[in-house]
Design a protein around this nucleic acid. Sequence first.
DNA 1: TATTGTTATACTCTATAACTATA
DNA 2: TATAGTTATAGAGTATAACAATA
Lengths: 145, 145
Amino acid sequence: MPGPAHVGTDQLMELLSVSLGVYYADFNAAAARDKLTASQGKTLSVLRHGPTPMRALAETLACDASNITGIVDRLEKRGLVRREPSPGDRRVKNVVLTPEGEHAIDTIRANMHTTLAGLSTLDDKDRATLYGLLDRVFTARPTDT
Amino acid sequence: MPGPAHVGTDQLMELLSVSLGVYYADFNAAAARDKLTASQGKTLSVLRHGPTPMRALAETLACDASNITGIVDRLEKRGLVRREPSPGDRRVKNVVLTPEGEHAIDTIRANMHTTLAGLSTLDDKDRATLYGLLDRVFTARPTDT
DNA sequence: TATTGTTATACTCTATAACTATA
DNA sequence: TATAGTTATAGAGTATAACAATA
């Protein structure tokens, strides 16, 4: 039942832009509570999936590989991540989340009050619908670059 | 019909994180084609709604007011925006999009190929549903900070 | 030769604090 | 006093180019 009668691509793009702005501000504020920048928080978020080489981090974060060195340096200095040599390829360093790092990203997500409050207005069916739609729009087709 | 049987808040938060990451990377790449940063592109996007005081720009972009000076400086130097005195309050400056600025943000949106391709997989009904859900989650309740 | 991670550089973004001109 | 915009500053993010180690 939700949604207006007709929605053009322009309107949807505009709402996506606003939604991203709200989500990003929420994430940024939650990260800032723990003195983390958005890029640092996003990096921890990616590492939640498991150990990741520097180069793969750069691709997922959509930035140049040279930037990852500094970001991981600062996270490592605070004990939130660790660099480990890759067994298979001695050029590669895998970045691993420490227990403190896991706790940090969990805290950030728990502090995203605006987004969590927004999601709490959805019932089970709506959540499943939104999940399915976002999946189709953004993750169904991997970036073919 | 879309969507899995049951979706928890954690899963939805994770997919939102990934989805908005894809959207942001797409926006950033499209802006970079015109030698614009993400913040500059976002500023043009906000100005699409009409003339906006510097202070209001800072609130919408969720950053400190002092940053807006530099961002608007660079956009103004390129002829994409203009500062205009506010008739009612001589302290206020309204930032206005020039025709070149309008063209720039339109070009950025037209170049967001990944997002546009994803949206093109939705039919009219799905678009309306996604619109309604995003609206409820992110814009129904104004930020009560 | 190609790839991974790093360094050096220049520019942009960002928050904080202090300032000015208005209100 | 309070608010809008600016400036100065320091730290962080960013792309580009060049480099050492490894493949």
